[in-house]
Simulated scan of single mutants.
Amino acid sequence: MMLLIDYLKAWPQYVMPGHLLSRLMYALTRVRIRAFKNLFIDTFIRLYKVDMQEAVEQNPHAYEHFNAFFTRALRPEARPLADGAGAIACPVDGSVSQTGTIADGSIFQAKGHSYSTEELLGGSRERAAPFHNGSFATLYLAPSNYHRIHMPFDGRLTGMVHVPGRLFSVSPATARAIPQLFARNERVVALFETDVGPMAVVMVGAVFVASIETVWARQVTPPAGRIIRQWSYPENEAPCFARGDEIGRFNMGSTVIVLFGPDAVNWTSEIGHGSGVCMGQLLGKTQR
């Protein structure tokens, strides 16, 4: 019965103009008219029970528009960072969709659905090869969550890929109903080299996710376009990030997928499907 309900919820998304709706949301969330943006923010806080005591700026009306409020910075003490040698920190607030092994290049999405690492990373066999038989963690951000993305582990940026695509919802119900969801939606892939090998942080767009930003390239999307865009960062020019550093943000909610190579990490047994997580908490430990 649940699966039937999921399909009924999902099928209108095939004909819904996802990019148009997201561009409209982009405009609405940047309106600076005081009465409008304050009502928008106040309504959101009430509906989602947002705790403004965690924010650096605790006055909701001090934000210039809704998106500034939505991507607000938190006080460092609000999100303690996992420490200790080999600790993998959760990059976002949200809930665990799935964790596991990338079995022969296939990543588990939900019951009955998987997708390939190659598809997720933009159709490149070369980009996918280092993650063959590696590990993945899929983390879902609800609208109420903190929407900045942080570094799971120390690393050096080696490349970035913007993969245009659809903008389906990424809710758990949609993940159960739409095959290869995360390899079909628009996404930004950040590739890093770490002491335990390659790491990818994949920022997956969704309907109403009107923009994805990184700290090194600023706004990557929009524009959406139709062509895969790639950037490479030579070793002598590449930015390095420490565990917990901010690396990007979603302007509205979505999903982050973290990939490691084989024999690199073990996810902690304390998290599993549906577990709530906060940015900075222990997600796993390195094996090396």
Rank of each mutant, 00 (worst) to 15 (best):
I228H: 15
M16K: 00
S169F: 07
E235K: 09
D6C: 10
R226K: 05
V202G: 10
S97D: 06
A73V: 10
Q281K: 07
G94F: 04
H162W: 14
P76G: 10
R187G: 08
F136K: 04
R148I: 11
N38K: 03
D245A: 06
G18R: 08
Y7G: 04
I88Q: 02
Q53I: 00
T29F: 02
P17T: 04
Y7E: 14
L21Y: 08
E119G: 07
S144Q: 07
G248P: 02
R176E: 14
D42Y: 00
C90T: 06
I41W: 11
I88A: 05
F70Q: 12
F70P: 13
E270G: 15
G244K: 02
E246H: 03
I271K: 01
C278E: 12
L181A: 10
S144T: 06
Q219Y: 01
M1T: 03
V92H: 07
G205W: 08
L4H: 04
Q58V: 01
V56F: 00
L181G: 15
G284M: 02
V277Y: 02
F70K: 09
R75F: 00
R184A: 11
A175M: 13
S211Y: 10
T71I: 07
E235D: 13
F192L: 04
M203G: 03
A55C: 10
V207L: 14
S124E: 05
A87L: 01
T158N: 09
A87Y: 02
T43A: 14
V15M: 04
G155F: 03
G244E: 02
V220I: 10
L259A: 08
A242N: 11
G159E: 13
S124Q: 06
R166E: 14
G205H: 04
M252W: 07
A35M: 11
V215M: 03
I45H: 01
L120M: 14
F208M: 15
E237C: 12
